[in-house]
């Protein structure tokens, strides 16, 4: 149970192969079956109860697909990435500074509107997003239909429907990840448009930020965070950029920091 899972994670953190071919972050709201997707992909046995806020530590697992070793990082289930809680901050920091090669956002097909909120937030931070529309079997039972091709077109990122519990769609998800990481498939996420004042302010701040961020972090996203008065992100970015000057190991550093939050 939990104790075992925690131990397993400790071991994983140590054994986590630096020679992994790709690191994938798994984000999503609570109760979207995110952990089931994680287990389905990695086979690592991690407990998945049906209650909110269950994943309180980062779980990592590996799988091999087309001879590539992929490391999967299960982020805490959150409603948002605006960093109101430790969980949200961890998830945000990993996506922002951990520089995963792709981020899979797991959404609940029976409750798409609410879940897209998080997906849109992730898409503001990184273009390398795959949307995994999970629980399509539940949706079918509830007579809810989702037009996935249309959704992919509207979002500008790949969309894969899955029913992780029944192991449906997981191979397609692996293929989508493979395409994004190794075939460098381009996405064109459609950014959220804000009202005129905000857009005007962003247009002013964004160019000023760019020289500092040097393309490491999305400048529009940072501009928005500065506008909404998020102070935590400023300190984190300062730390991150300084670290990066010293060592050329962004991924490891990002992970280290995230792991430190739990120590």
């Amino acid at each position: 149970m939990k104790g075992l899972a925690v131990d397993a994670r400790g071991v994983f953190a140590k054994l986590n192969p630096a020679h992994s071919d790709g690191v994938i972050a798994l984000a999503g709201n609570p109760n979207t079956g995110k952990s089931t997707v994680f287990n389905g992909l990695t086979g690592l046995n991690q407990h998945t109860g049906n209650w909110p806020g269950k994943t309180v530590v980062l779980a990592k697992g590996n799988y091999r697909y087309k001879s590539k070793l992929i490391t999967l990082v299960d982020l805490p289930g959150t409603y948002s990435l605006l960093a109101n809680s430790a969980d949200e901050q961890v998830a945000r920091d990993f996506i922002c500074f951990g520089k995963p090669d792709a981020t899979v956002v797991v959404v609940d097909a029976t409750c798409l509107e609410r879940n897209l909120n998080l997906a849109l937030q992730v898409m503001e931070m990184t273009p390398k997003v795959i949307l995994c529309v999970n629980l399509i079997d539940e949706a079918k039972r509830k007579k809810i239909e989702i037009d996935c091709p249309k959704l992919a077109e509207l979002l500008g990122v790949p969309v894969v429907p899955t029913a992780a519990r029944e192991k449906v769609g997981l191979d397609k998800l692996k293929e989508a990840i493979h395409q994004m990481v190794f075939a460098h498939q381009q996405t064109r996420p459609r950014p959220v448009r804000y009202n005129q004042e905000i857009e005007a302010a962003v247009a002013k701040i964004q160019p000023e930020l760019e020289p500092y961020l040097r393309g490491k972090i999305d400048a529009r996203w940072v501009a928005l965070r500065l506008l909404d008065g998020d102070t935590t992100i400023i300190t984190e970015i300062k730390k991150y950029l300084r670290v990066e000057n010293v060592e050329k190991a962004p991924r490891e550093q990002g992970e280290l920091k995230v792991v430190k939050c739990y120590k």
């Binding site: 948002s80 605006l82 109101n84 909120n117």
Partner: peptide, 11 residues
Amino acid sequence: GLTRNRLLDLG
């Protein structure tokens, strides 16, 4: 503060 953000995030 935090409560406000929480409620906003819930939609």
